[in-house]
Each structure stands twice: as C-alpha cells, then as structure tokens.
C-alpha cells in the first residue's frame, strides 16, 4: 500500500477514496477557532497543496483535553463522543496542534476502556488522526516543492511537548521549513523543555508557570531569531504573551502560517487585526 490515502480501513463507514484525493476533516481546535482563525486557513491551504479535500465538520468544538487533564472524565467522554461522531465520515482528522491531535490519538481510546463499542470507534478515529505537520510529512509525503512560501529572517522553533513526546514530531516541521524561501533556522537550545503553558496549569500555578516561560523567553531572545515558531497555539500564546510583556521584538507565528506563506500579517499578540483579517482568507501564496 503505497498510497497513504488508502492506508486505513474504511470499515467504520468512511467513504472509500483510495483513488481520489483523501478527505481531511480539519479539527480546527478551539484556540485556533476562537483566537487565530488564520492558522486554520493556513492549514487548509497546506492540506490542499498536499492534494487533500478539506472539510470542517460543523459539530466540532473542543477535543476535551481541558476536562480530561482536570480529571473530569465525564465531560471528556461526552466531548470525545461528539468528535468521534463528527469525524466518522472523513478519511483523516487533522489538527494544527500536537496537543489536540495527541489527545485524540493517545487518549480517546483510554477514555473508553470500559466501553467496547466506543473503544473501537475511538481507536478507529485515533488511528486516522494526525497533527498537521506530521500528516503532511509522514502521511502525505508532501514534496518540498509544494511549499510555496517566503519568510525573510531567522526563526527559532519550540517543540511543543505533546507533539514531541506523544506524536514524535521533531524533524517534520524543520524539513518543511527548509523549503520556505528566505528562512534561516536558529535552533533553540531548550526547544524540548516545556514553556510552562500546560493548559489550566498556567492559571492554577501562575508563579511556577511564569518562571518557566520567563526562562523560555530569555532563551528565545538569546537565539537572536526574528521570529518564534511552534505547532501549538496554546504554547505560542503563552510565549508571545511573555515576550510582549517584556517588550521583546521577537515575532510569534504558528508554523503553519509560515509554511503557507501567510505570516506577513501581525504576529500573535500584535496589533492591526483589521488588516490581518483580509490576509486570513486563503489566497495564493504571497511570495
């Protein structure tokens, strides 16, 4: 089976698209939906460039991770069931977040360990769910030539914890970034150390979280990079918030924005939203 679009069985009711472009259900994630839709549009653009048909199932809200990590298994299961229902018809679920994709891939089956029917459905979805950049690389084997983007300057990259450790995302974003014209990668020595976001952690233990993001921000600034990139908006908002508070000039973008050539608007936490909204609509690569 060389065609990745046919690598999973469709016994659970997904349409057979083995000869056509696979249908990707974009799990936009609540943070992207609410705070930075342009990341979602960047994801759509990249998925289409990788030969996928993209749908955004309407009944999606959140992956349930806030509840799950707070020990609220009841709500977690209800939210998970909703996501499983909403994405049952697509070939793949793809999220522009290692954290949400990790929740679906690694933890949905765990949530239904005592419910065989749901466990089966959760496992089926889990096996078809990916984080955006790893999907583009590992499943679609996206040719570097399909990345049409330009970003002038040095960037540094933070490996968000869930993506790194639950999904083994490390080289994939770096590989794709190497295809972006004008970009220079200046590695962050502490790239694999948590930024201190941790969902509710950052508000439950604000002082500890602050210490962590303070060290992270210092490390980011020390790389001298013009921009910080990562694959998770939660971590990005945390680090951007700290960098802005400190008055650091570093700009902050989701890696998908740069890969899609959509990082010419304001970075996370920067002003001028009005212009940004115009930029956010999917458009040909602005190179």
């Amino acid at each position: 089976m060389t065609d990745p679009s046919s690598s999973f069985s469709h016994a659970d009711g997904a349409p057979d698209t083995s000869d056509a472009a696979p249908t990707v259900g974009l799990f936009v994630t609540c943070l992207v939906d609410l705070f930075r839709p342009r990341i979602g549009f960047a994801a759509v653009k990249l998925l289409e460039a990788a030969g996928c048909r993209v749908v955004a199932p309407r009944a999606q809200t959140c992956c349930g991770q806030p509840a799950y990590n707070s020990g609220d298994n009841g709500h977690s299961r209800r939210i998970a069931a909703q996501v499983i229902d909403a994405f049952e018809g697509v070939d793949y679920l793809v999220a522009p977040s290692g954290s949400c994709a990790g929740m679906i891939r690694a933890h949905y089956p765990e949530l239904f360990e005592d419910d065989p029917a749901m466990h089966l459905r959760a496992s089926a979805l889990a096996s078809r769910s990916y984080e955006l950049v790893s999907f583009l690389t590992d499943v679609r084997d996206m040719p570097l030539a399909a990345i049409e983007a330009r970003f002038d300057g040095a960037v540094t990259y933070h490996d968000s914890c869930s993506g790194l450790r639950e999904l083994e995302i490390k080289q994939q974003p770096r590989r794709l970034l190497s295809a972006v014209e004008g970009v220079r990668l200046s590695e962050l020595p502490s790239a694999e150390i948590c930024c201190g976001f941790g969902g509710a952690f950052c508000v439950k233990y604000p002082d500890v979280s602050n210490k962590m993001v303070e060290e992270k921000a210092a490390d980011i600034v020390a790389t001298g990079a013009d921009a910080l990139l990562a694959g998770d908006l939660g971590c990005l908002m945390n680090m951007a918030g700290k960098l802005k508070r400190q008055g650091a000039p570093t700009r902050v973008y989701h890696v998908a924005e740069v890969l899609a050539g959509m990082a010419d608007g304001p970075g996370i936490g920067e002003a001028d939203i009005g212009e940004a909204e115009e930029d956010a609509a999917p458009a040909p690569a602005d190179t």
Binding site: R36, P37, P206, K244, E277
Partner: peptide, 17 residues
Amino acid sequence: GWTRHRDFPAPEGSTFQ
C-alpha cells in the same frame, strides 16, 4: 493568573467557524 505575568494575545474577532 495569566495577565499578572504576561500579556494576553487578543483574538482576531471572528471565529474560524
């Protein structure tokens, strides 16, 4: 808890959905 130590990035204004 958030803004004591860092700024809170503003949303774009309309949702992806």
